[in-house]
């Protein structure tokens, strides 16, 4: 499979949010405003891309030779947690203005299942290093796209009249269902 089609596949046709249900919590939690959603998307892209490279090397050069691949979940989550902490410190030290806008999203990423999910998918699909990077960027771009579009729809919905019992989360899920239907149609590309 060519890298371009891998990118399109991971961003659109097998979008991690709408077809694999990863990152639903941030989707519902931070999609109240478009600004927040965009911040979350950018932070996730950064963390996913860089930590997938680290986990690639750790998996193939440490876990596989030492015959301890069953530890992958534990090792990966540790890598993500440490990496998020380091990134937070670096951003705070070198880009204080960026820290102000993205800082609050970084700790949330540790428990974002999209991040761990993408790492585990990369490993189980047996991607090479280049494919790992492309699919990580593609998936996180897909995540950003969905969370951004979703939050704009929700901002609009707030101004409309919705039945009382469907207000808030229930109607958000219905919106997600319609979006998932649309994304399912991308399969033909």
């Amino acid at each position: 499979m060519s890298l371009a089609s891998l990118f399109v596949m991971s961003a659109l046709t097998s979008n991690i949010v709408l077809t694999k249900f990863l990152g639903i919590c941030p989707l519902m939690g931070t999609s109240g405003s478009t600004k927040k959603a965009f911040g979350m998307g950018v932070s996730v892209t950064l963390v996913v891309t860089l930590s997938s490279i680290i986990t690639y090397f750790l998996y193939h050069y440490v876990l596989v030779p030492s015959n301890s691949t069953y530890l992958e979940t534990l090792v990966f989550i540790l890598v993500i947690a440490c990496f998020v902490q380091i990134l937070k410190l670096c951003v705070k030290r070198f880009f204080p203005s960026l820290h102000k806008s993205l800082g609050i999203y970084l700790p949330l990423i540790t428990t974002n299942c999209a991040v761990l999910g993408i790492m585990l998918l990369n490993i189980s699909n047996e991607y090479t290093l280049l494919e790992t990077i492309v699919s990580s960027i593609g998936s996180s771009v897909g995540f950003t796209l969905v969370i951004y579009v979703f939050s704009s729809i929700r901002e609009y919905l707030d101004t409309r009249k919705v039945p009382n019992c469907m207000k808030g989360y229930p109607i958000a899920f219905i919106v997600a269902a319609i979006m998932a239907l649309l994304f399912a149609r991308y399969v033909g590309i």
Partner: peptide, 25 residues
Amino acid sequence: SILKEPAGAFLTLGLLMGFFNLLRA
């Protein structure tokens, strides 16, 4: 068959949530 697909999952959860909200109200 739509309920088997990802969209169906969102739909079911949304409707069930609405139903439980209605019960509570």
